[in-house]
């Protein structure tokens, strides 16, 4: 459901026209448009934005851990359209227990490393990712360092 305050934004309107159930919230804050997308719809919305709305670039993918709140994780996608000179942020909320979301590597091959990084540091799994391995930490590392319940210091016992 698109919030009333976002009706004036062409991108938000277009996404709503494409799939009304995909948008579950959003905000326009400090000149930046953020849309909250239902997690199962993320790949199709990204495909729509890339091929239909000219958001050819995926600037980054990252995540925020809202521990101990639920849904705990927020996956953040920053999209950039060179033609429209515009940016839009997509956010998906995931539960803390076994967080999993569809990969967007089918839309942008460049999502590969960004999603690996989120997988490595947050432990969020991406379905249909071609090569979901750790990228920053050693392969045999335990835990996901950017989670809020992962200590900043201390030694392993």
């Amino acid at each position: 459901m698109l919030p009333e305050s976002l009706r004036q934004h062409a991108v938000a309107q277009a996404v709503e026209a494409f799939d009304a159930e995909a948008i579950v919230g959003g905000a326009y804050d400090r000149g930046e448009l953020a849309l909250e997308i239902a997690p199962p719809k993320i790949a199709s919305v990204c495909g729509f934005l890339k091929y239909d709305q000219k958001f050819v670039r995926l600037s980054t993918v990252t995540a925020v851990d809202r521990y101990p709140a639920e849904p705990r994780f927020e996956v953040v996608y920053e999209l950039h359209s060179l033609e429209r000179n515009q940016r839009v942020r997509l956010q998906c909320r995931l539960r803390g227990q076994d967080p999993v979301i569809e990969s967007v590597t089918s839309v942008w091959r460049g999502a590969n490393w960004y999603e690996r990084e989120v997988f490595d540091l947050f432990g969020i799994r991406f379905m249909n990712h071609p090569d979901l391995r750790r990228i920053m930490m050693p392969d045999d590392w335990e835990g996901h360092p950017l989670r809020k319940d992962y200590p900043i210091t201390g030694s392993r016992v």
């Binding site: 804050d29 400090r30 930046e32 953020a34 600037s59 990252t62 925020v64 920053e78 942020r89």
Partner: peptide, 19 residues
Amino acid sequence: GEVYQVIESPRGELGFFVV
């Protein structure tokens, strides 16, 4: 709040996502 600030670093697009 959340912001994403982009600048042009010598190497390309440098973005800071700050919550």
